[in-house]
Design a protein around this nucleic acid. Sequence first.
DNA 1: CTGAAAGCGCTTACAG
DNA 2: CTGAAAGCGCTTACAG
Lengths: 343, 343
Amino acid sequence: MKKINSTEIARLAGVSRSTVSRVVNGYSNVPDSTRERVMKVIAEHEYYPLLSGQLLAGKRSGTLGFFWVSNGTIHCDMLSSSFFVYVTENAANNGYLLLSGILPNFTDEINRNWVKRIFMQERIDGGIFVGASNNSPLIDELVAKGKIVGVFDYHHPDVNVSNLITVNFENDTGAKVIDYLVGLGHKKIAIIDGNMNNYSSLKRHEGFISSMQRHNIPLHRGWMIYADVTEQSGYIACKELMASAKELPTAIAVNNDSCALGVCAALDEAGISIPQQISVIGIDGHPRGRYQAPPLTTFEFDFNALFRSLVSRTIAAIEKEPVETTEFIPSKLTERCSCRRIG
Amino acid sequence: MKKINSTEIARLAGVSRSTVSRVVNGYSNVPDSTRERVMKVIAEHEYYPLLSGQLLAGKRSGTLGFFWVSNGTIHCDMLSSSFFVYVTENAANNGYLLLSGILPNFTDEINRNWVKRIFMQERIDGGIFVGASNNSPLIDELVAKGKIVGVFDYHHPDVNVSNLITVNFENDTGAKVIDYLVGLGHKKIAIIDGNMNNYSSLKRHEGFISSMQRHNIPLHRGWMIYADVTEQSGYIACKELMASAKELPTAIAVNNDSCALGVCAALDEAGISIPQQISVIGIDGHPRGRYQAPPLTTFEFDFNALFRSLVSRTIAAIEKEPVETTEFIPSKLTERCSCRRIG
DNA sequence: CTGAAAGCGCTTACAG
DNA sequence: CTGAAAGCGCTTACAG
């Protein structure tokens, strides 16, 4: 079966290729009778314009890039996995295809080049990034080159850049977490922070600290540990906390739920009961949190809404519509059983 | 900043476009001195060949399609979400990009056409399908057109079709499930089947039945119910079972873990304790199974291996290497706490 | 080892 | 309303 092209369709329909193109693209300046005749030939021969020709003639690809920066084991985390699905679904709802890729990091020249090539080759009309460190040179470079870039959890000092679209968590969740614990009567609070290269982790940290200062709660030595966004990092951090602290806190505020799950595992293992001896609270709304024993109390985000916002605004930017370049998503306290009132 | 093309690179390097192309594509018949000179100009000007030109000249896109057939709410299920990640990771490991899309169904002409267009436009070199009903006309059509198609859980009668690549669950898991329950002393076994349009569900069903016959275990009226692959369908099926059966079974064999989680929820709600009153066993190895109360006993599959096999063989077919067109993946019994020995 | 030339398939101002 | 023509950027036999 020979591949059919627009020249052939034109010949069979007795029109020029220009007209075939007009019909294919749904332009209005084609009389119905001509349109129908051409459509009939197109349908009969199952003609679909080749992407290569369309691209070369200057059409957009209708494809959005999705780049996930993660060190190799995304599929281990259910929350992370769901991001893929949210982005794909939201792109599809906007009529875009999604070209997805995973990179172990952004610091390696090879990885950066891989992403850059995809943009430069014009495979995609724009790209979404998840897991990028704040102030990533690659993102700045792509933005400087005029590429449309949408980034999850990213802060850019210059608000006037119209081709950098971001979505962020609200900035005061950290403070809300501490306020909540204080409201339950806790005064001995330990903090397990996240990766400070992430904008949100930094803001959550600042929130933790500012709220503790506001409530005049001292931060004891050994009660602030840095971890990451994995369960294992939380597990290790909690071990470290238990080993180094002279006294145990009554509550632990954790940067994120994945990490908090690890904290709970470490406490379990040490025979420390949650929340009787130590309350644990996370942030994010990890889907596994509700199935934990005890179910995890957390400040939850609507990740679907978050990605809907990011994807739709990025696509709007591609289509040269005016957009808000950033949006902050609010949290919702989900009280389950991992925190208790004391004192 | 004007976009730079191969003509310009050729001019700056003092060679022809042919030579630029040879360098870009790493052909051997270019002396090192020329290669270096050209490379230098390419690097200085950050030249990347445009996809459109390459495609038009007949190169492959290096892109694999990934089509997920699901009625709208994939992100609700963690196991399903992970499929996306496995496929993306495995495609990347083979040097391919992934173009992913979600469709609510395969029966609607609009959806079928959407997929068909992506193939016909030559956006992708081949495509992977997940969630397709067995004997799907669209897949047969694509195969007939010579497209390279990889399908998860699909059976095709004609083994000689070299462009249809499949990966399947082993066919006897259903029998193993019943054998296991019988081994624990169960004689009163109910079955909750899956969607019979899926090849695996049909095979699991056949396995259930054949093993029960082999053990001379009668299938009581009302002890066989059809469900789907969702938790909710399992919940509903179990309610139905409890409502219609004259007597309750001592064990329920469920087509898949998602569904089994729903069965457990329904039993919980009815105050029936697992496994004291009824044992429940699933198939798949759903990540949530281990966090259930009680943790779910199941026959588990290595989904990463499964998708690694599917993706790598599909890519091999694209690159015209010889491949096994199908592979069956074995299960592994993971005994947790939802089944008990009786009698 | 290298260049000139052909070829890939489409869209879009432009002219009528 | 419609066609002829220009233009988009690359690769690959072919000839030398």
